[in-house]
């Protein structure tokens, strides 16, 4: 038992690799099949470049890719940040006021039915080619999942805990801060993981509709120049970016919710 615990603690990296081996294998298999198909079928590189080509081109164009990744990252983070602040504020409002909840929720849902294809060029038209329209579009696509996650999280508070607090004479604000807010955390992080993937896609889409720089405009330019290898290189970068942000949310959850990670603090 002691040996087991020690050996597990001693080699965290190999343990991680073991756990993710199936996923790594699946991705590797896809790339191998893709590479094999391109080589054996003799398909033209302007139609479908091989993954090795894509990686090679990504490396050659790394400076341009990096220059265009930074604005996308900035738009993603700023837009996501705004969305989080607004979603959190509104979640508190609708949690305390059922009337406002009934009034506002249909509006929020309607905001999610707007097709991004139509709204993105309009927002660019109104707010120009700068950062602001990207922030707005990222906020638009991520705001609703965050709001729903928070509101459902509050509602998932154990009734016994709330009754206990009430029996202690706790005020509504105290009950919210002590019980409802922490109860919503798992829901919040579930929403965060989903939204963060939307956020990157939203930012790229916003840039696609008009921007000075960014992965979206890079993809558009590469496509217009018949360079699918560069399109895919930018896609590769955006995937890595999304994965990195996804990983960051998991790390953040571990830090914020230490009670939920079973590895630590188990019986002595």
């Amino acid at each position: 038992m002691a040996f087991d615990a020690q050996s597990r603690r001693g080699t965290p990296l190999s343990r991680h690799v073991c756990r993710h081996l199936p996923a790594i294998g699946a991705i590797a298999a896809i790339f191998v099949l893709w590479e094999a198909y391109v080589r054996l079928s003799g398909i033209s590189a302007t139609a479908l470049p091989s993954p090795s080509d894509v990686v090679e081109q990504a490396w050659i164009n790394r400076d341009a890719l990096w220059r265009n990744t930074l604005p996308t990252l900035a738009a993603t983070l700023a837009g996501f940040g705004c969305s989080l602040i607004v979603a959190f504020a509104l979640s508190i409002v609708v949690d305390f006021s059922p009337l406002l909840r009934r009034a506002l929720f249909p509006v929020f849902i309607a905001s999610q039915t707007l097709p991004l294809v139509a709204i993105a060029p309009l927002v660019v038209l109104w707010f120009g080619f700068g950062l602001l329209p990207k922030i707005l579009l990222v906020a638009l696509v991520t705001f609703f999942p965050m709001l729903v996650a928070l509101v459902e999280g509050y509602a998932a508070t154990e009734r016994e805990i709330e009754e206990l607090l009430a029996s202690m004479g706790a005020s509504g604000t105290r009950r919210f801060v002590t019980a409802r807010l922490p109860s919503a955390l798992p829901y919040f992080f579930a929403g965060l993981r989903i939204s963060v993937t939307y956020a990157v896609v939203g930012a790229i889409f916003a840039e696609y509709a008009g921007a000075v720089s960014g992965l979206g405009i890079y993809i558009l330019t590469a496509k217009n120049n018949f360079r699918p290898d560069l399109v895919l290189a930018a896609v590769l970068v955006s995937s890595l970016l999304t994965l990195a942000l996804f990983g960051a949310t998991i790390l953040l959850q571990r830090i914020v919710m230490p009670w939920a990670s079973p590895a630590k603090e188990i019986r002595p």
Partner: peptide, 18 residues
């Protein structure tokens, strides 16, 4: 209605996991 003289222990322990 204010300031009840009871300390209440609910059916399930209602400990806050966090």
């Amino acid at each position: 209605t204010q300031d009840r003289p009871f300390a209440f222990m609910p059916q399930r322990d209602a400990l806050m996991p966090w």
